[in-house]
Nucleic acid binder design. Structure first.
Lengths: 340, 340
DNA sequence: TTGAAAGCGTTACCAT
DNA sequence: ATGGTAACGCTTTCAA
């Protein structure tokens, strides 16, 4: 219990000099003690006095000053835009954060929605992060990478469906998802396969590669792919469902489980039978799918564990000249239920 | 186009001194030009030379150095733990970020999952933020508030269901949600009302106040409330559904739409009719509810627009001694469909 | 074992 | 109109 807790109001912020004064030692000694500097031996009583003084004043070191002096920070910057918000990605993010924190990095997310690629890169660079991990949903031009590197970032890493020239890449290859869904449908004997393309700029980053993967799989397996634009509302779904007979399709990969639910309901409402007239496959393998009737077939995605990636980031920070690496994080496999 | 773009590799980070040297002026002049300092008149040719030099070097100012010099940062820190991930909260967050950015703050999220209240506050304080906005899902003790204030934070603001002593509070009063649902059910003639309590630590922050609000509404309106623990899986839902007859309830507020879907499916699977035997109300008014059969009644939540809150934060930063304020952000209103 | 001092990048004050 | 200089808080080398 500090007796100073009654004056948490205005006042100068305590510095290491204040701690030194109170403990009756020099600032250097304070630094040695508080950082457990192994290269110097400080007597136990002194250490105690310093720690007590720091406690009493509520001293907290000033990260900016430390960074300035050290010439580099230990901040890992994670720009965020329209991140996927599913539990899979969320858990991955938390794991990555925890892993990096464990390696003594300060992980910080920077909301970059609405910033252009150049402004954003500049804003990130001002913070002089040791590393930047840029999700695919956030614009990043090669020029941005250059700005970051010139500002001292030891590693620039992209995280998303596609790599960006000049940066390391943690790849979540969404083509796998589309490919997986289509191969599954081909196996089930379907040939004329629709692929839902959400009419939503946030989903576009994922939708395009999923479609590409679907196309590739169809090419190999002898199917035909038709892209189907769909907004996330009942009206749009009803319109699409009404067109179903004339489309001449026998299956649809619905982008994800939520779009699948939307579309399946609309299909059923106009009398299209699932899966008899239309096999439906979603993606995410969410609880949702298990609760629908018929139960929704889906594509289950698995992300690599994040700890090795935290180690990877650390390695790249310590060896900044490592040539760009690619790491595949995403695995997809079909989960058949009743809708296909 | 800078011709230096071919060497984005290692090398010293350009400083304002480098810009000054290249432009043939002093560091002070560089600072004046780049910050558009109005208190000093610089000739147009000089300005151009400085800007060109900065461009050519890819100079980006060093936020830490600026902070150190200024004695305060313009960083707003937003610790994150288990935030709600719904579109409502997400949009609110993005709006708040954009609003603060517009006021020239640097908004940064700090993943604090797994940190204790004290460690977390300390970690935040090291960054010397101008303001900290702490969601209810992140632990914050009064002691943490003191640490932050002593480290120079001009404003400590909580954002969540309940206020914390000594901090400003942006309140999303979840009691309103439970109350709204129960009042709706009472109006529909139901009296014995179950309230789903998710068996999930992440949801606990919201579940408890929703239950409290439900209880209060029942007290006023002459109903009986029964808390029903439920895990987010089919087994748990089936167990609860099997017990339904013996519970003697005629309605249930299911915490949110996803739990409502889970429970409704389980009830229907054991032959409990919705809404005849059990009225069901969710919350969030998501697309989900419109797609279920019967269509799910829900509680629609509306959050205040974030721009005024950005202004509020700015005001608190500029007047740090303002006594703690409370602001209510959440409004709830029932959306009746077919399940109640 | 401890202290004095320099220097990180920036800006504001005071000269010129 | 522009330049020199000191200071912000911290760490580290060198000296005592």
């Amino acid at each position: 219990m500090s007796q100073l807790s009654e004056q948490p109001t205005e006042g100068p912020v305590p510095t290491s000099a204040d701690v030194a004064r109170l403990a009756g030692v020099s600032r250097a000694t304070v630094s040695y003690v508080l950082n457990n500097n192994a290269h110097v031996r400080i007597s136990e009583p002194t250490r105690r006095r310093v720690r007590e003084a720091a406690d009493e004043l509520g001293y907290v070191p000033h990260a900016a000053a430390r960074t300035l002096r050290a010439g580099h920070s230990r901040m890992v910057l994670l720009p965020t835009g329209n991140m996927p918000t599913g539990p899979l990605h969320l858990r991955f993010l938390h794991e990555l954060e925890a892993g990096l924190r464990h390696l003594d990095y300060t992980v910080v997310q920077y909301g970059s929605l609405g910033l252009g690629a150049d402004d954003a890169a500049r804003a990130w660079a001002e913070l002089r992060p040791a590393a930047v991990i840029v999700p695919g949903s956030v614009p990043l031009a090669p020029q941005g990478i250059a700005v970051l590197r010139r500002s001292g970032a030891k590693a620039v890493i992209t995280l998303g469906p596609q790599p960006v020239e000049g940066a390391h890449a943690l790849i979540m290859d969404q083509r796998e998802v589309g490919g997986c869904a289509v191969r599954h449908l081909l196996e089930r004997g379907r040939r004329r396969i629709g692929v839902v393309m959400p009419d939503d700029p946030g989903a576009a980053v994922f939708a395009a590669p999923r479609l590409a993967g679907a196309r590739a799989a169809a090419m190999t397996g002898g199917g035909r792919i038709e892209a189907l634009s769909l907004r996330y509302d009942e009206e749009s779904a009803a319109t699409l469902a009404a067109r179903w007979p004339e489309l001449g399709l026998d299956a649809v990969f619905a982008y994800d489980d939520t779009y699948a639910m939307l579309l399946m309901r609309a299909l059923q409402d106009v009398g299209v039978r699932v899966p008899a007239d239309a096999a439906v496959v979603g993606a995410d393998d969410s609880m949702l799918g298990r609760l629908l009737r018929p139960r929704l077939s889906s594509v289950r995605m698995e992300l690599a564990t994040a700890q090795p990636l935290a180690d990877l980031v650390d390695r790249l920070v310590r060896h900044p000249r490592t040539p760009p690496e690619r790491h595949d994080l995403l695995r997809a496999r079909p989960v058949r239920r009743e809708s296909s």
